[in-house]
Simulated scan of single mutants.
Amino acid sequence: MRTDARTERFADKVAMVTGAGSGMGAAVARQLAAEGARTVVLADVNGEGAAAVAKELPAAEAVELDVADAAGVDAAVQDLLHRHGRLDVLVHAAGVDDPEAKERIAAALVEGRPVEMTDSLDDASWRRVMRVNLDGTFHVLRAAVRVMRPFGAGVIVVIGSSAAFDTPVGYPHYAASKAGVHALAQAVAKEVVASGIRVNVVAPGPTETGMAARTPEVLRAGFADPRVRPYATPEEIADIALFLASDAAVNLVGAVLLANGGRFTA
């Protein structure tokens, strides 16, 4: 954990981070704790992973949570409210990719043939990505707004993806899910700013997470462009998320910050 002049940005704040068992979510949770948060609730479908990260932190607790389970999300947020009195900061980093689709895209590239995915993409694969990425974001946003609105304050940061803009070939379900996440967050942001709640989005490019580790080498090599920055670290994306969650970003509402190291602009 880094400590610097920002260490009190989140002093006395009650925070929740989804997808906090690894990657960007874990980096966000660690930095919130380092910057003075009174409590950080780490939520992840991998409860053991969330618990392991929470053990590192001075004032943190873990909860096993599948964001696709609407009732489970509501219960987790209401339990946080009951035990801690309020929710000040919510960073939603939970999401999934499609490793099988990545393997099929990689095979096509290696064999020098066109990527053909849409006509063979099955309903189960489509629904899995949508259920977690888009439905899950709705569940988390709704639950957070329900507990923040009565207080007239709160900050929500959603982790989206640059794939919503460059729409990778062979990855229509993932690109569509993240584009939906961006539009959903922006629509909610315009509504809830009148209630004192700010909602913004970080749209990372390639980042060294568990998802990246499962990416076939031929696809990773496609991102190796010497003209731009290499894969981001989870901590670099966490810095952007926590800037949006801080008072320094008070005038940002419904923003989608593209954090892809200069690969493209939108």
Results as ranks from 00 to 15, higher is better:
35 E>T: 01
35 E>K: 02
35 E>A: 08
36 G>D: 00
38 R>T: 01
40 V>A: 04
40 V>P: 03
42 L>F: 13
42 L>N: 06
45 V>Y: 01
45 V>M: 07
47 G>C: 12
49 G>R: 05
52 A>K: 13
55 K>S: 15
57 L>A: 11
58 P>G: 12
65 L>T: 09
69 D>M: 10
74 D>S: 15
77 V>K: 02
78 Q>K: 04
83 R>H: 14
85 G>I: 09
88 D>Q: 10
88 D>C: 00
89 V>T: 05
90 L>D: 02
92 H>A: 13
94 A>V: 10
94 A>R: 10
98 D>A: 12
98 D>P: 05
100 E>D: 14
101 A>Q: 14
108 A>E: 06
108 A>F: 05
109 L>R: 13
110 V>T: 13
110 V>S: 10
110 V>R: 10
111 E>P: 06
111 E>D: 15
111 E>M: 01
113 R>Q: 14
114 P>M: 09
115 V>Q: 11
117 M>R: 10
118 T>E: 14
121 L>P: 12
123 D>T: 14
127 R>N: 11
127 R>P: 00
128 R>A: 14
129 V>G: 07
130 M>N: 10
137 T>Y: 09
145 V>N: 02
147 V>N: 11
147 V>W: 10
148 M>H: 03
149 R>F: 04
152 G>Y: 02
155 V>H: 08
156 I>C: 03
158 V>D: 05
159 I>M: 08
159 I>P: 02
160 G>W: 04
